[in-house]
Design a protein around this nucleic acid. Structure first.
Lengths: 210, 210
DNA sequence: GTCTATATGGCGATAGAC
DNA sequence: GTCTATCGCCATATAGAC
């Protein structure tokens, strides 16, 4: 038992049966609030209030604010890789796999907005060490599989650039939604994942044709 | 004379002959530091030090931190529209215009990183009122012209979605550079604007073809 | 228009009781 | 493991002299 104290996965399982440890409660609130306000924008007092605990109790579980932030990010990232497993394991042509990947990525990003905003803030800070950690421990496998797919779809093109383009297209539809509401030509269906997914997939597979 | 005190454009002109007013000095530093650290991350003391002035002097020019921030954003945005004028006024096929637009956007974003980061932070905050201001007073004309071009290139597709895709592709190559360094398949030429521009243009005009 | 000095409060972090 | 109380510092913002 003592061996598992502090193990996030154990706490996740506890969470699934409705028992949230204090540490997990803190981390859950931290993910939401760091995503919303950013690192300097969230005070330990605000977090303590949100988690319904005292500031001193937070410092019992985490040595300082920075360590808590890093833990929260790791916690938010854990398990995300599994979402795409079914995409890569599924049967079908490369074109079908691309459509499925785009659809899945879009759903993950739109459903878990806190995850998306946390990543976005991290990328914006662009700290080299943290970028390396993020790339290697979170996204590396997915990026490689996407490059493989890109290579099947367009062997003559640069797989790294193609993979980046695919991710860019999906990510920015989510990100630009609040801004794009204010531009002409906006239609209600532009917020529906299937419409966006169809557009992106079509664009990639056919380009712009008259 | 008194009429022009506080007029940013006047101060810009003064700036061009090497005379920076204190207010302009503050705004210039504010753009850099807000872009780097974000609103809560930058203190008035740090800004005062960077602008080589006292905190009280800043409060002589701006009523409070928030007003200063909004002024800094407006200041950073002023004049950006002119950059693309030559793209839209130039002669050539729609395909050539697209290539030129992509190239210009890429250059503006890569050269003026502070501008890019300020916008990015604003979009991430996603405050509805500020999104409206940003869309209408800064990007509206460009977006409309880009939609027109999209319509010429692909009349059967949704111009709003196509325009968003084009911007997404360009913006994220800049944004992902620090992260992408850590993925396999990375090549040095992936940081050259002309290589990126060629890839994006090709992707849009031809799609992924075997 | 700029300064020094200061008011007032929130910040991260800790001490020590229970 | 959680609390109340508190430390020392830095935050935004202001007062008033020059």
């Amino acid at each position: 038992m003592g061996l598992f104290i502090g193990n996030i996965l154990t706490e996740r399982l506890l969470g699934k049966v409705g028992v949230l440890s204090s540490k997990e409660k803190i981390l859950n609130e931290a993910i939401i609030l760091f995503a919303e306000k950013g690192y300097p924008g969230l005070s330990m007092r605000q977090l303590a209030t949100a988690a319904n605990i005292s500031v001193a109790a937070i410092y019992h579980h985490f040595p300082d604010k920075n360590a808590l932030y890093l833990d929260a990010i790791q916690y938010a990232f854990s398990g995300k890789e599994l979402v795409f497993a079914r995409v890569w394991e599924s049967e079908g042509t490369p074109e079908e796999k691309l459509a499925r990947f785009i659809r899945s990525l879009l759903e993950v990003m739109q459903q878990d907005r806190n995850f998306h905003r946390l990543i976005q803030r991290e990328i914006m800070e662009a700290d080299p060490e943290r970028m390396q950690l993020l790339a290697q421990s979170v996204f590396n496998k997915q990026f490689c599989l996407l490059m493989q797919l890109a290579n099947e779809l367009a062997p003559d093109q640069d797989a790294h650039l193609v993979a980046t383009s695919i991710i860019s297209l999906v990510k920015n539809y989510i990100e630009y939604q609040p801004l794009n509401k204010n531009f002409p030509g906006r239609k209600p269906e532009h917020e529906q994942p299937e419409v966006i997914a169809a557009h992106i997939t079509g664009l990639l597979l056919n380009g712009l044709k008259k």
